[in-house]
C-alpha cells in the first residue's frame, strides 16, 4: 500500500481534483428531465473527447524514427478528433430537433 500513498502524496493536487470532480459530476446531473437523458449522454460523450489532448501529446513527443508510435499516435489523434467533433455536432443536432418539437 505504501507506494499508493506516496503516489497520492506526490499528486495531491490531482487527487483533490479527482475527488471534487466526482461530487461535482453527481451534483450537476441530478434532477435532469428524462427527455434530456440522451442529449446529455451525447454531450458527456463529446466532453470525454479531451482524451485527444493526450493523443496530441503522445504524437508530439514521438521520435521521428519510431514508426509504431507515430502510426498509433496518428490513429489516436484521428479517433479522438472524431469523438470530439462528431460528439458536439451530434449533440447539437439532437437539441435542435428537441427545440423545434417544443415550439410546435
Amino acid at each position: 500500500m505504501t507506494p499508493v500513498f506516496s503516489f497520492l502524496e506526490q499528486h495531491l493536487e490531482l487527487t483533490y481534483i479527482v475527488i471534487l470532480s466526482i461530487f461535482l459530476g453527481v451534483e450537476v446531473i441530478s434532477r435532469v428531465p428524462s427527455v434530456l437523458h440522451t442529449p446529455l449522454m451525447s454531450g458527456a460523450n463529446a466532453i470525454h473527447g479531451v482524451v485527444i489532448i493526450g493523443a496530441i501529446i503522445v504524437m508530439g513527443q514521438a521520435s521521428e524514427e519510431n514508426y509504431l508510435a507515430l502510426i498509433l499516435g496518428f490513429l489516436a489523434v484521428i479517433l479522438g478528433t472524431v469523438n470530439v467533433v462528431g460528439g458536439f455536432v451530434v449533440t447539437d443536432r439532437m437539441l435542435e430537433m428537441f427545440k423545434s418539437k417544443k415550439s410546435k
Binding site: G25, I29, H37, L40, A44, H48
Partner: peptide, 14 residues
C-alpha cells in the same frame, strides 16, 4: 482529469 472524471461520475449517475 476534470473532463474525464466529470464524465465518469456524471455518466454513472446518468
Amino acid at each position: 482529469l476534470t473532463g474525464g472524471i466529470l464524465v465518469g461520475s456524471a455518466g454513472t449517475i446518468l
